[in-house]
Simulated assay, not measured.
Amino acid sequence: MAHLADKKVTGLVAATFTPLKSNGEINLSEIGPYIDYLIEKQGVKNIFANGTTGEGMSLTVMERKLLTEEWCRKAKGKMDHVIVHVGCMSLKDSQELALHASQVGADAIAVIAPSFYKPASADVLRTFLQEVAKVAPMLPFYYYHIPSVTGVTIPVRDVLEDIEKLIPSFRGVKFSGCDLMDFGQCVSYSQPRWSCLYGVDEQLLAALAMGASGAVGSTYNYLGCHINKLLSAFDKGDLVQSRNIQFKMQELLSYAIKLGFNLGVNKSVMSEVSGLNLGPPRFPVMPCPQSTARSIAQKYNSIFLEN
Rank of each mutant, 00 (worst) to 15 (best):
K92A: 15
G87P: 00
I112V: 11
H100T: 06
L97E: 02
G105S: 03
G105K: 03
D93P: 03
A110H: 12
D107I: 13
L91Y: 07
A98K: 09
A113V: 10
I112T: 14
Q103S: 05
S94L: 01
M89L: 00
L99W: 07
V104W: 14
C88D: 00
S94Y: 00
C88T: 08
E96S: 15
A101Q: 06
D107W: 08
M89C: 08
D107P: 14
D93V: 01
L97V: 09
A113D: 02
A98L: 12
S94V: 10
C88Y: 03
V86E: 01
H100D: 06
V84S: 14
H100G: 10
S102E: 06
S102C: 02
S94A: 15
Q95I: 10
Q95D: 00
C88M: 14
A108D: 08
A110Q: 09
D107R: 09
K92S: 15
L91N: 09
I109V: 02
E96D: 08
V84I: 03
I109F: 11
Q103I: 11
I112K: 10
V111F: 06
C88I: 03
Q95N: 09
V104H: 04
M89H: 15
H100V: 13
A98D: 14
Q103D: 11
H100M: 04
V104M: 00
V111W: 12
Q103P: 08
E96N: 01
A113H: 13
I112H: 06
S90I: 00
V86Y: 08
L99D: 12
D107S: 10
H100W: 15
G105W: 11
V84L: 06
H100A: 01
A101P: 15
L99H: 05
G87Y: 02
A110M: 07
M89A: 11
L97Y: 01
I109D: 01
L91Q: 01
C88V: 06
V111E: 12
I112C: 15
E96Y: 10
G87S: 14
L99Q: 12
L91E: 09
I109A: 11
H85K: 02
D93T: 06
A110G: 05
L97M: 05
V86H: 05
A110P: 14
M89T: 07
G87H: 02
V84T: 08
L91D: 12
H85F: 06
V104R: 07
M89V: 11
V111L: 05
V111G: 05
M89S: 11
I109R: 09
A110I: 00
A110T: 06
L99C: 14
I109Q: 01
G87V: 00
A106H: 09
Q95Y: 00
A101G: 09
S90P: 00
D107K: 08
S94D: 00
H85D: 10
V84K: 04
D93I: 10
A110D: 09
G105V: 08
A106N: 05
A106K: 13
H85S: 08
A113E: 07
L97P: 02
S102Y: 13
I112L: 07
Q95T: 02
A110R: 09
L99S: 11
D107Y: 06
Q95C: 12
I109M: 04
C88H: 13
M89G: 15
